[in-house]
């Protein structure tokens, strides 16, 4: 996104908005991660305690999800940059 056309007041405002949205986004990502990993990893409700197998699965799932998100983010940024360059050359 390109905010170069914005004046200083608008840029300051957008910075605040973006910071708030990043926080919300992180929280949403966090809770969706817990939901997703719990759904995949926990299927035995004969006990209320997390088994060591379930715990290991949750940790692997969380780690993998973060790495997945990072990789998607990196590719997304590249594709975005490419698309903007293509648009600028038109």
């Amino acid at each position: 996104m390109d905010f170069s056309a914005f004046n200083a007041a608008e840029q300051a405002h957008m910075t605040k908005v973006i910071e708030k949205k990043q926080m919300q986004d992180f929280m949403r990502m966090y809770s969706s991660l817990v939901e997703r990993c719990f759904t995949s990893c926990c299927n035995d409700f004969t006990s209320k305690a997390l088994s060591s197998k379930e715990e290991q699965c949750m940790m692997n799932c969380a780690d993998k999800f973060l790495k997945h998100s990072e990789r998607v983010g990196a590719r997304f940024a590249e594709q975005n940059a490419e698309a903007m360059n293509a648009a600028a050359q038109k």
Partner: peptide, 8 residues
């Protein structure tokens, strides 16, 4: 930074 932070 979460997801949004990766947007560049």
């Amino acid at each position: 930074s979460g997801a949004t932070g990766a947007f560049g």
